[in-house]
Write a protein that binds this DNA or RNA. Sequence first.
DNA 1: TTCGATTATATCGCTTACGATTTATTATTG
DNA 2: CAATAATAAATCGTAAGCGATATAATCGAA
Lengths: 146, 146
Amino acid sequence: MKHSELPSRAQDMFCHSVYVASHVINRAYTPHLKKLGLTYPQYITLTLLWEKDGQSVGALAGQLRMETSTLTPLIKRLEALGHVQRRRGETDERQVFVHLTGPGRALQAQAPGITACMVEGTGLTTQELDSLQALLGRLSDGLQPG
Amino acid sequence: MKHSELPSRAQDMFCHSVYVASHVINRAYTPHLKKLGLTYPQYITLTLLWEKDGQSVGALAGQLRMETSTLTPLIKRLEALGHVQRRRGETDERQVFVHLTGPGRALQAQAPGITACMVEGTGLTTQELDSLQALLGRLSDGLQPG
DNA sequence: TTCGATTATATCGCTTACGATTTATTATTG
DNA sequence: CAATAATAAATCGTAAGCGATATAATCGAA
């Protein structure tokens, strides 16, 4: 990789695009989530639990590539809202497993409508979103192996 | 767009990918930036100033799709570090223009090496990064027109 | 020109987000 | 079996990040 191939303008760096997109996505979600009383990171965390309930804090943090120090207080807020319940592991008491409550599970019904809204708002085709997804996945794996 | 075409798994949503990638990118940058005494958002802001010095707070916030309420304290920290100087506009005293100092300008010399490191770390080709960039740009424009 | 609307930034409260450290538990090694 | 290492969450301090609000300056219209 020669330096001459590097983007010269700041706007041409992929980091800039991801940074900007993350802000835009957060803002686009907010009006929908406000009706549910959720923040965007809280919603993302719930989607993982709808997919697979009873995951440990560490397992959730791993999928989000976040630190447990970030996730612990977020999950406590979800618990205070009545959407999840935290339980110490029985065989390994170091671990804490997060379980959906009835209301937490019920929120899942609202997700498809929100997803449809977001997908449509992007203006991209399903194929384009798929390739975006694939590229970002490889990028994340490349930058943070393991 | 039928619901049947919507991603059913949380991991398949583009939002999830962008969210994760933003964390991964932040962490990949951190060791390089720590040597410069900068955070990733501070670095991103500086890249815009290297590109075009003397921009207003609002202009910078617009490019980053952020609120001035986020940028103002960040810029004040950059000023405290001696990298920029804030000056009230002369014709319009509401505006605050951010100007690089000598040391702030000098940091630009470190950027190409960091960029090369990041680009290489992604494991993606230049063409792939270009198309990623293009897709994210269209996505952001679609979700937040204007 | 003067009063109301708009604009640009700043302030405030709250929620992420990280790294460093701490605490409690489990694994390992001697 | 005891001392040590490794692991999982949690805690702490600091820096983003947003929305709502405040402040100050500019613009517009009567």
